[in-house]
Design a protein around this nucleic acid. Sequence first.
DNA 1: GGTAATTTGTTCGTATGTATG
DNA 2: CCATACATACGAACAAATTAC
Lengths: 254, 254
Amino acid sequence: MSGPRFEPVRAVRAYERVVEQVEGAIESGALSPGERLPSERELMVQFSVSRSTVREALRVLQARGLVRSRPGDPNGAEVLPFSPAALHKSMTTLARVSELSLGELVQFRMVLDSAAILLAARLRTEEQLAEMAAAVERMKEADSEAFGAADVAFHDAVARASGNKLIQICTDVVRSIVVDLIAGKIASAPDGEALMRRSIGHHEEVLAAVRAGDGPLAARLSRQSMYDYYADYIPAEERVALRALLDYGDIGGP
Amino acid sequence: MSGPRFEPVRAVRAYERVVEQVEGAIESGALSPGERLPSERELMVQFSVSRSTVREALRVLQARGLVRSRPGDPNGAEVLPFSPAALHKSMTTLARVSELSLGELVQFRMVLDSAAILLAARLRTEEQLAEMAAAVERMKEADSEAFGAADVAFHDAVARASGNKLIQICTDVVRSIVVDLIAGKIASAPDGEALMRRSIGHHEEVLAAVRAGDGPLAARLSRQSMYDYYADYIPAEERVALRALLDYGDIGGP
DNA sequence: GGTAATTTGTTCGTATGTATG
DNA sequence: CCATACATACGAACAAATTAC
């Protein structure tokens, strides 16, 4: 005789219940960015838990990037607008503890960036195109410091033009991780000047393809550009996998 | 007269210092998965902070998926092997708070999955190919419940065959989010049977292309397959952006 | 199997530095 | 400048859970 199907109950901590309720209020929109949570003392009354429990819950919410609390603030913890900081943190952790290789990260960038460019070539506005062009111009006239910033601005404009917020956020996160990983190496590159010039040429080609609306060409060029830029820092045996994204000579083209 | 350039010091909480040290030990490999942290009382001695501070730090580390602590465990908190749970959580939050549309998520899946398949067609082993084939066979003989599981198994085998752990993890995370979002709708689809049959046909075509080593064809087919599967659940004005990934009739092919 | 010891989960009280008005 | 309310941090205590003997 089979009774009702009971489900196993995991012991759920008090602080988790607090986290769940606050998190639910934020995700449902009952609490909007900029609004304030009640003070810790008020929360311990509303949830009927102790102060420590409230604080542990707030720590978790803070670690997830949902709230921020400052000492002495009479208004209680602030609900934050979403920021990809938590996503950034967990992906960085992934890269470190899961031993992601630079090759894997660059390959992922090639995939995301070329997808963004493919979409941008179709969906861009004139204004966004102007942003990309301005960024490339800045790359030309920049020293090696401002060069990186202009490069970021270009790719960010592309990502926004893709119309997909997830692509935009992920490209940004992965790019910053890659840049952090090899910051030193690039700066000390013997032929840094030549690398910059070649990169500018690549960006101009990509920009022209985007302007012409030729997404597949733009995407192919961007993959090649990123490969050329990073290949020297990637072990030869890993480069094979990266080239698997390149050497369809006719990918996306006639 | 300019003195030494002091940098502004942000007030860093005591629990953050604890988090940083433990996190550093884990990321550097000084602490490996399966190993145990000292007990809370031991930690408060080593860090010379109070127990509350130690606990707040442990909560944060737990929220990041790095450790787990159980009540009564004499061995202290356990260092966990990396799991994408934290990544999953932050991306789910992103989807909710940042109001990601189903269209954006599906588009992202199309990008990642087709990249995985493109790579898998090149880099797969025979064993991985057999896994994919087995999954497709299971899809054929499954009811609507097991169908989903077999589908997941197929895409997971593909992602592993891509050779890129980041692609593997992200495809998994995004897939589960999408599936959660529309779980109800798919189940109550009027023509669920027909949808399943068509999906099986698509998967067989993709599998054949992978077996033949034709990555661009496999990628194109997979994008089309995913579009067909989800299009009905996506508002018409959003479908335009998804089709921007499709209607290069010749993408990746001659 | 039962009991003791240890650990985590949780509560409560207190002191301190800080931001607001 | 002062008063108030807040977050930060500490410490002691008890309950519940786990392990080991």
